Computed example of a mutant assay.
Amino acid sequence: MDDELLMVRVAELSYDENKTQDEIGALLGISRWKVGRLLVHARERGIVRIEIVHPRARRLAVERALVERFGLKDAVVVPAPDEPGAVLERVTRAAADLLAALRPVPRTLAVSWGRTLTAIAEVLPDGWAHGVTVVQANGGVSLNRRSGGAASVAVTIAQRGAGQAVLLPSPAILERVETKLAIEADRTVAAILDQAAHAGTFLFTAGPCDPTSAHVENGYLEAEDVIELARRGAVGDVLGRYIDAEGNIVDPELDARTVGIDLERLRSADRSIFVTAGAAKHDIARTVVSTGLCSVLVTDETTAQALLEET
């Protein structure tokens, strides 16, 4: 029996027949040490492929590639589920797992809001932290009351971390620059924004530049507004600020009416965790990771592969 065929036989007996290395050695007339070496070589040559199948499994090789390519501190990549609708659930659970495992535990956590952050808050375990302060990083008082908005996200994360929520009492986008400046000049609002800007850890997502945007859902913008932003080069928004593929603000006038911390704070933060899932956010995800807006990425395998292949 040549070496390659012997390798196949050893693999079959080990993985298909569940035989021990001693048993395989006795059957094939070789030592158990040679059996072990052949199994290692079988995996190295791709004759044997081992896949861990579980919703909370991770793709470690892809994570390492992302960290190396984009200079990240860490990455969490979960397998893409067979059902497209399960992607968000799988990614947000991974984000909750990451948050609960952070060491040191965040004392102050600044958060954005939206469907992704709401889903993370809902699956965070009680006791994930002890005494954490959760601060809104950008305005989010809903104008149509159809969703819980930013307040419920911050409150839920804080309650499950035995801490307190510091809420930003402002819409995300105001109609007049003068109104925005007046709100941010208020002593209480200014103190909240300063607290958010100096948080040790940020947890945020990004929205696509299309009519499914949370800003349309919550009444800040019309569908035609985001279509026009896309025409001008916007790929999505981060903390309510619409940016192009290079990370530049697309509409300075709109940005001047947006309440929240500056994006530069994400770049300079000790830890900025970006959570994204699904094909609709590939463009904005690529911009976030390639322009240094995050130091930690949590995403699905399909998104991760798109980032690695297209940059």
Rank of each mutant, 00 (worst) to 15 (best):
R145E: 11
R176D: 07
R160F: 12
E178K: 09
D210Y: 11
A190W: 11
A86S: 14
V123Y: 07
V105R: 11
A162I: 08
A214R: 03
S170K: 03
P104C: 10
D194I: 03
A206L: 01
R176V: 04
V177Y: 02
G114Q: 04
L203G: 00
G139P: 09
T108H: 02
L181F: 08
R187E: 15
P104A: 07
A197Y: 08
A162H: 12
T133L: 08
V141M: 14
A121D: 01
P171N: 08
P171G: 15
S112N: 13
I183M: 14
L99R: 00
A101F: 12
G140K: 04
D210P: 03
L88I: 13
V78E: 13
G163L: 02
L167H: 06
A190I: 10
S152K: 08
A154K: 03
W113C: 13
A80L: 13
G149Y: 05
H215R: 01
F204T: 02
H215N: 15
D194V: 04
A165K: 01
R160Q: 01
A101L: 12
P211K: 07
A101G: 12
A199N: 08
D194S: 12
T108Y: 07
L193H: 05
V132F: 03
P208E: 02
Q195K: 12
A214K: 02
A119C: 09
H215Y: 11
A151Q: 06
S170C: 14
V87T: 10
E83I: 15
I192V: 15
A199T: 04
G163A: 04
W128V: 03
A172Y: 04
S142R: 14
T92C: 13
A151F: 11
A121H: 05
A151R: 10
L203D: 01
S112K: 10
I157H: 07
W113P: 01
L193M: 03
P169W: 01
